[in-house]
Every structure is written in C-alpha cells, then in structure tokens.
Simulated assay, not measured.
Amino acid sequence: MTQTPPGRKHRNPYYTGPISDHFDGMCFFNPDGEAPLGFREVMRWQFGGGRSAWPKQVPSPFPAAKPDDRVDGKGLRVTMVGHASLLIQVAGLNILTDPVWSARTSPFSFAGPKRVVEPGVAFDDLPPVDIVLVTHNHYDHLDLVTLKRLQRDHSPHIVTPLGNDTIIRRAIPQAKISVMDWGEQLSLAGGTEIDCEPCHHWSARGARDRSMALWAAFVITTPAGKIYHIGDTGFHNGINYKAAAEKHGAFRLANLPIGAYEPRWFMKAQHQNPEEAVQGMQLSKAVHAVGHHFATVQLTDEAIDSPATALDVARRRHGIAAERFRALRAGEVFHVPEI
C-alpha cells in the first residue's frame, strides 16, 4: 500500500503539478514505500540514548586534493570532498554532487551538526565546475551558502529534482537550473546524458514542508561509461537498484551512501546500512562503487568509524574485493578502472 506523508493543511510552497504515481497533488511519496516517522518517534530516538560520541575534529588520512582541470578520454576520477560532496571528473566535465563547504549542515550558522573533517578539496582549488547535482533539499545535501559561492565563481549548470529549483532560485535568481522528474532525461554537450531516477527517501527544510520537494538518484551516461549516483536512500528491498540495472544496464561506478543508519528501527526507511549498500552494488550491476555519506558530520547514532568497518565486513561476506567498493575519506582520489 502507498503511504503518503501526513500534515497537508497548507499549500506546497515549492511545486505545483499533476498528480502522478509519486505525487499526490501536495506531497511526493515513495510508491509502495514507507513515509518518514513522525514527531513522537523522533523524540523517542533523540531521548532514547545510544548515541556514540564523535571527536570534535579529525584529520583526514589524506591531504587535501588539488584536482587537475579536466579528465578526458576513458578516464574517470572521483575525489571525496566530504559527506555526500564528490567531485566527479569524466568526459571533460567536472561534476559536483550535493556540494557543502559550510561548517554546519543546518539552517543556522551557529547551531546544528558540525563537520569534524575539513573539506577534501579547498574551495579555491576546485577546477572549473560545469555541473552541480543536488539530489534533495536536506541541509546536508542542499547548502545555499555553497551554491551561492559556486554561482559567483563558476556559474555551473545545476540539475535537481522537482521543487528544489524553487528553493535554489529564491536565493540565486540568476542560476542556470534544470529541474527533473523521475524518469526524465537531460542531454548535455559531448554525448553525456543525465537521467533522474527514483530512490527511497523524503525531504524537508523545516517543520511544515515535509516531502514537498522531490528527491532522486541520477544516472550519468558518458562516453567513458555510466555512473549511478545516489545521495540518500533506504534500501526498499532493492527495488530501485533492480530497476536501474534493468533500464540502464551495468554501471562502471555507483556512488552509494553507507552512513547515518542507526538506530535501524528509525533509519531503515531512509538510510541504508553498509550491508544493504553492498547488496545495492550487486543488484545495480555496478563494477565499482564509492561509499560516501559518513565520517563528516554526525547525524545519527553510530560511531564515526562504524560505516567503514561494517563495509569491510559486508564486502567480505559477499566476496567483493576491497578495491571495487571504496569508502572514500576527505581528500582521497579514486581513479576508477576501465571496464
């Protein structure tokens, strides 16, 4: 049965459009999926104990990267900035995902989750940024302060799901934005295409706009191969992974979240764990994978090193070599082998 989010007593401030299999006229939802839990469950989690202590500051084992301007031919290079912010360099394009250079992933500069690791690429060391993918509007993925800086210095083409364009355009009226629904495709110069695909998540910027902007995964099809990028997702019985493989075939690379998954009773529908990420890699027929969304800001209960440790265990259980699924740390660079 389809479950839609509660609380629809006011208009949608971000998007107006036709009803679909994932939009009920007011809110977006996960078809045959689970809506996020409500206030009572949030309080049960927040006051239930069990949160591991994170250090206030951690140096990355890798120095800050200084990427080359471009990667051409069959090359594919991924550099970890931190959390869900990745620099993907492929087919002559520089693509940033969910860029956050701010100190906090919060509506406030003085409170909220604070990064414990410095960005793996200094903002001023970025190569020319062509494309920015914004997967959804949670503050650890859509950071308006960073997007303003990118607009000032790079004027990138921003690609984002329905409704998020409204949030961005209010802050950056001059931004070039392509807004996409699930199942739509965007063609770029040089034979690169971006497909907007489902993932199992939700959205909100405040207390009264839950699920009023869409969330999505992206498939980037390039002359150097296909990349499957997911910013956040619950596993959802692997349904979306299977669908991506059936539609797009094998991927050279999948960027998959592996953190922010405890406690499972609360996080299961919105954040997969490392075991599920490995299953997702296999179901999507990805040859290589990058693990992200961990060890940068504390959003949930697990320890800072738990996702990487759990990924090691899951890889061994499924017979995946360590070099095929890498949990990247800030500043780490992955030269993805050719298929």
Rank of each mutant, 00 (worst) to 15 (best):
D209F: 07
W202Q: 12
P127C: 04
I158A: 05
V116A: 09
W202F: 13
L96Q: 01
P198N: 09
A217M: 02
L96E: 09
A213N: 09
T105Q: 08
A207S: 14
T160K: 05
A122L: 11
A204Y: 14
A175C: 03
L150R: 04
D125E: 13
G112A: 07
K114W: 04
D165V: 03
L126T: 01
K148Q: 15
P128F: 06
A217W: 00
H201Q: 10
T97K: 08
G120A: 08
N164W: 03
R169N: 09
L162M: 10
V90F: 12
A175T: 08
L93C: 02
L162Y: 03
E193N: 14
A217Y: 01
S109G: 11
P156H: 14
V145D: 14
D98M: 08
A175K: 02
T105V: 15
R170C: 00
H154V: 03
C199K: 07
G183C: 07
I167N: 08
G206F: 12
V100T: 12
K148T: 12
W182L: 04
H136N: 09
P161S: 01
C199E: 10
Y139E: 11
E197Q: 12
L162V: 01
L96R: 03
S109N: 13
E118L: 06
W101C: 12
G163W: 01
P113Y: 00
L133N: 12
T160A: 13
E193W: 10
M180D: 03
A217L: 01
D153Y: 12
P173L: 06
R115T: 06
A103Y: 08
A103H: 12
P128I: 13
F123K: 00
V117N: 09
Q151H: 13
W101Q: 09
L126G: 07
V159F: 04
D195I: 00
H138T: 07
D195S: 15
G183P: 02
I177A: 06
D153G: 02
D181G: 13
Q185L: 12
P156Y: 10
T166I: 10
P107R: 13
W215V: 02
R104T: 05
V90D: 03
A189W: 06
V100G: 06
R208V: 10
N164F: 06
T192N: 06
D153A: 15
N137S: 15
G92P: 08
D153T: 10
G206A: 13
L126C: 00
R205Y: 09
V129M: 04
F108E: 09
P173N: 05
